[in-house]
């Protein structure tokens, strides 16, 4: 009983409760059946106990995704908190799966749970990592494409946190555009 009380005292609460989702592509099943909620957490300590017990992203098979979203927001365009939003997209080369992917994803998670985007952190819905044979992708999703100031602030901070060179340009795409076009052809609404 004492240890339960102590645990509550010493755990470090996060600003938001977060939900980790796992997607595994089973083609015989509808998309939504392949998406599972793993768990939710709202302390720094519980984040790490989850992170250290799940497979690294680079070890997942092609077609799998992890998503970390604020609890209550589903990791899909259709969710009312996502549908007017978009994503800052990081596309990686095949070689980067072994050199960079896990570090970039961890940094993305730390940006989210640490509320790295200052007063604009409320605009963040979540982040997704897609493991794909043709090249992996990581993205931070925000709720409203029209909030230009918030979106560009988030993009600038995110790019800096990932340690990307100033020569690298990352783009922000509206989900509404991605949903109607082949994702690789979606045009960037903003770049940083």
């Amino acid at each position: 009983k004492e240890s339960v009380i102590l645990e509550k005292v010493i755990k470090h609460s996060l600003q938001s409760r977060w939900a980790l989702w796992f997607f595994k592509n089973v083609k015989s099943q509808p998309w939504q059946c392949n998406l599972r909620l793993v768990t939710t957490f709202n302390t720094v300590e519980d984040f790490w106990s989850l992170y250290t017990h799940i497979q690294l992203a680079s070890k997942l098979s092609s077609g799998c995704d992890y998503s970390l979203f604020k609890d209550g927001i589903e990791p899909m365009w259709e969710d009312s908190r996502n549908k007017r939003g978009g994503r800052w997209l990081i596309t990686l080369s095949k070689q980067q799966r072994h050199s960079d992917l896990d570090a970039l994803w961890l940094e993305t998670l730390l940006c989210l749970i640490g509320e790295a985007f200052d007063e604009y952190s409320e605009e963040v819905c979540g982040a997704v990592i897609n493991i794909r044979a043709k090249g992996d992708k990581i993205a931070i999703w925000t709720r409203e494409t029209e909030n230009r100031e918030a979106v560009t602030h988030i993009g600038k901070v995110y790019k800096e946190r990932l340690g990307l060179s100033s020569k690298v340009v990352i783009g922000y795409q509206a989900h509404a555009d991605t949903a109607t076009k082949s994702s690789s052809l979606s045009k960037n609404k903003f770049v940083v």
Binding site: K11, H12, V44, E45, T52, L110, I113, G114, A116, D118
Partner: peptide, 20 residues
């Protein structure tokens, strides 16, 4: 106020033993 944590603070908890 908002609970903001920088990366070094968060990383400091990575290898702490879990509470039992």
């Amino acid at each position: 106020g908002k609970r903001q944590y920088d990366r070094d603070f968060l990383l400091g908890f990575q290898y702490m033993p879990a509470c039992v």
